[in-house]
Write a protein that binds this DNA or RNA. Sequence first.
DNA 1: CTCCATTTGTTAGGCAACTTGCTTATTGAA
DNA 2: TTCAATAAGCAAGTTGCCTAACAAATGGAG
Lengths: 371, 371
Amino acid sequence: MLGLLLEHEKPVTRPFLAAASGLSRPTVFAAIQQLEKRGLVRAVGQQSGAPGRSATLYEVPEEAGSLAAVDIGGSNLRVVLTDLRGTLVAEQHQPTARPGGPAIVAQATELLRSTLLSSRLAAIPLHTIAVSVPGVLSHDGRTVSYASNIDQFEPFDFHTPFADAFHVPVVLDNNVNLAAMGERWRGVARELSTFAVVAVGAGIGAGIVHEGRVMRGAHGAAGEVAFLPPFGKRRKVDARAHDEAGGLSLLHDARSRPGWAGEPPTTVEDLFRRAAAGEKPAVALVEEECARIASVVASIGAIIDPEAVVLTGGVGDNDQLIARAAHLTEAMIPFPPSVIRSGLGDRASVIGAVYLAAQSARLELMEGPAG
Amino acid sequence: MLGLLLEHEKPVTRPFLAAASGLSRPTVFAAIQQLEKRGLVRAVGQQSGAPGRSATLYEVPEEAGSLAAVDIGGSNLRVVLTDLRGTLVAEQHQPTARPGGPAIVAQATELLRSTLLSSRLAAIPLHTIAVSVPGVLSHDGRTVSYASNIDQFEPFDFHTPFADAFHVPVVLDNNVNLAAMGERWRGVARELSTFAVVAVGAGIGAGIVHEGRVMRGAHGAAGEVAFLPPFGKRRKVDARAHDEAGGLSLLHDARSRPGWAGEPPTTVEDLFRRAAAGEKPAVALVEEECARIASVVASIGAIIDPEAVVLTGGVGDNDQLIARAAHLTEAMIPFPPSVIRSGLGDRASVIGAVYLAAQSARLELMEGPAG
DNA sequence: CTCCATTTGTTAGGCAACTTGCTTATTGAA
DNA sequence: TTCAATAAGCAAGTTGCCTAACAAATGGAG
């Protein structure tokens, strides 16, 4: 019942909920009464137009509680505040000031606090915080290892600082996994149950969803496509890196090559522009990158056979590259997935974190009467 | 309730069932009464030893119904008959006489009929038939395509012949997927929730299980590891082939190489024996095959990160090869799965089919009262 | 403006599935 | 032989849902 109410943007009527849930009207009416008593639901008007008595409209009001999502990326911190339904109320982002787990977490809690205070949600109880972290989560869901793109090389507890600062439930998950959940919730993977998000930036990493469930793997290393055989040893990789400025190693490669007309490119956009203009080293570099990406996509295709692969990240979020990589993939396997561009771009991970927070909050709220 | 009874080899008491199901004793007692009325459960004695009144033991009797599993392999047909619990009652196998779908299915129904008649289950109602088929299943679960290792190149309906001959529910699934389910149920993957079975025979194919669910993919092509980039175009592959005599292309490769001391090897065993003895072409060929397998295992590892990879098939079911492939895999990815040998060998697919039949029958039986 | 088909809102009663709590029947061991 | 322990069976009570019936409101037809 509560679940159905949370899923709908617009207010809904009780008869509608009865039809949608398969329960009888008396049952639904009783449930709504309970929820109203708990402050989780409120009548917000009448539905009119159709013949017959007009039905009362209900929704989960903003005052019922708020959710926070934090994305700790390699170069940007993002904070999103929403109501319990996941409807955006406030959003802020800023560059990460200093690297290293402790400093970044302090910066993140500070940004979250200030965003919260300056929003209209300040007086409303914060229900859950979801944090998108760059690295492999330990089994207890609190400690993060291999967070190399924030220069945090020791395992570090990202959970406690948030829990201590806000005294609410805190849930963590990996950057790329959350990007996948985000694309599934509000992005281009809305209709898909099995797909992969491949983030190409400083390194390359994939978040894979199988029948609606994120694949994690025995060591939390599912989707570590940087280690796929053909290219596994070729370059120093930052596993799962999802650097938003992105493309660092690609630009590094660029600098070490001869034949540029003038300066080597300093941004990914510049590189692609010069490739489109036919500048030889740019064309070669882009073609190599496309081949590498196509090889990863083909490998995922041969093993998972997903409905689609979503490309994103500083390098991956480029139409030219996506089209070329898709074309190369089609030549490699007989049942290629469709290769599509991210619908959420840089914000996929925070949006995924909002979804995670909403799910987590929902589970707790459903414990109570008339869940 | 019925589920719990079917899962236990030995008879169990009602208080035990109450504890295991979390229900109260009166509820369990009533359910057992219902099931006894339907003939699905029978009292078979008393439990004694402990202080206190002795409890009545119950089990699902053989007369409650039987299950049939058929494995249509490239070189062997296998039939297994069991009771509703999946306990083996009769097993037969014979070489496939003529290739091609129609002939093989006729041979299979005939073998099933004769096995059934000569077993003590002849008078007991057959409940479900599960068929393991070599190829990709269509979406309706009845028609099989790409069954190249039984020389069936057109899509062919494997469902109707069995349904018409026995007038009971028929369920189909792919060879390798069922091998994975078999290993999970009664083989080496009993404790695992995410793992892969890699069958190396005429071709190479994988059955992948993620959190207990078989991965199928958007085109039913999940696990088609023959198409993985480094080797995808190297050899003519029979997708998903799980040839029990196995290793055809490996032996073909052998024949086309120079330097053999005498005749080239004609069996996989011979090849491995001669490699162990240090014969140059054999050593080189085995090493190449191990590298190819390691590359597949590493790719699966990098994408899925399974707890283990089970090797099987005519070529894969060899300790020497498994050890070498495992070693090579460890050098390729930093979080290698354990590589283990099949626990069921050739019989994995039939055993998996028994499991499928048991699951399917269980679902139907649970529809009735006191499921 | 009135009536009416239609749909919402509410109340009453009932049923299925499961409980708890109690009594009775056995059983092994002191 | 008696007793603690456990199983078996019975009698309410609880929960979560349902159907059935009716009262209240509404837009449109006449």
